[in-house]
Amino acid sequence: MSEVSSKSFSCEGCGAKLVSCLFCFDCSSLQSISEESDYFSALGISSEFDVDPDLLEEKFQHIASELHPDFYLNSTPQEKRLSERASTLLNQAYDTLKDPFKRADYLMSLKCKNVKWNDRVLPPTFLQEMFTLQEELDEMLENQDQQGLLKMREVLENRFQDLESGLLPSFRMLDSVEEPETVLEKLQMNLNAERYLRRLLDRIKIEETT
């Protein structure tokens, strides 16, 4: 079982069980936003890494079509405010959960609230490699080496993909082991490495668009 089980919410008005913690589809009412409202409960999906993109999209559309401020123009100021806030949260939830890297990062923050481990962990010699790559990138940018840049981008993107595809098995394992610390550390290592790679990719992308 998942460490963070999907929370259950009921409507403040009619008491019905909620699909999304932001809105009651039974009595069509906006719900107030509590500390308990996380991105998964906002979208009404269970808090695990394995998210079906189609389901995510469907849920988002379904809930957004009820929450959006466009439908509350003539409502009370309080409802208007609530609709803006709920829509903001829903947008953030959707943007975070549709991206595997952000989703993993967010899920880690939920799972690791009370776990202590080395959060700066990286694969061996990784930092040296990143430093060398940054230096090479500097050189390519200076020499306007477009082919070099293109190649580096491809290499980095492939590594990024590799790291990302390792996330799902790790998260699955996390749910089945007794002592999750080692798996968490491995996950954290992948996420940390992804951030360094992302930084390099961003530099290349900025160059491409200017």
């Binding site: 559309q61 959006h68 466009d70 439908f71 123009l73 003539n74």
Partner: peptide
Amino acid sequence: HLLAGGRRDFLLL
């Protein structure tokens, strides 16, 4: 028209 409550069959984001 949508804002006035005349329809709700689309949503602009």
